[in-house]
């Protein structure tokens, strides 16, 4: 019986006790940077793999991000499960991942393609 209670405690810790603040703050900083044309600052908040895939030849990550003219806006909702998060902004949906150095944006400029289907994102990894 004690083992069952322990399993429940682990499940609770793993699944329920979440702080949505950190991914929301990263998403807000990213949105503020992209909407004010600060591509380099926004790129610093991208996951390494996403930032590496983004620019075309001869471009910097910041230039490529500025060209996309992503929209932002205030945070409407945050879903956080494990090391993954989805932040809905007024004008965009972002997907983030928690790395050792903190939350980084894996995908941005995302639009839904239907229930249970992956979002179609302007920027992803």
């Amino acid at each position: 019986m004690r083992a069952v209670l322990l399993l429940f405690a682990l499940t609770f810790v793993a699944g329920c006790a979440v702080d949505t603040g950190p991914p929301a703050r990263t998403a807000e900083r990213f949105a503020t940077a992209v909407t004010s044309g600060q591509g380099d600052a926004a790129c610093a908040l991208l996951a390494a793999r996403t930032a590496a895939r983004l620019p075309d030849r001869g471009q910097t990550c910041g230039q490529a991000l500025n060209e996309l003219r992503l929209t932002g806006g205030p945070v409407l909702s945050v879903s956080l499960w494990g090391d993954e998060a989805q932040v809905r902004l007024n004008g965009d949906t972002l997907f983030l991942h928690r790395y050792d150095g903190g939350w980084r944006v894996r995908a941005a400029g995302c639009t839904p393609k239907g229930e249970n289907l992956p979002y179609d994102c302007e920027v992803d990894d």
């Binding site: 069952v4 399993l7 429940f8 499940t11 609770f12 793993a14 699944g15 329920c16 879903s79 499960w81 494990g82 090391d83 993954e84 998060a85 989805q86 997907f95 991942h97 894996r106 995908a107 995302c110 839904p112 229930e115 249970n116 289907l117 992956p118 979002y119 994102c121 992803d124």
Partner: peptide, 25 residues
């Protein structure tokens, strides 16, 4: 209790996977 725990933990694991695949939880 174990079945309930499976559902809660499975939801958490499944939703992390769905988000990693850029899907809604």
């Amino acid at each position: 209790l174990s079945w309930l725990a499976q559902s809660v933990a499975g939801l958490a694991a499944g939703n992390a996977e769905r988000l990693a695949e850029l899907r809604d939880p």
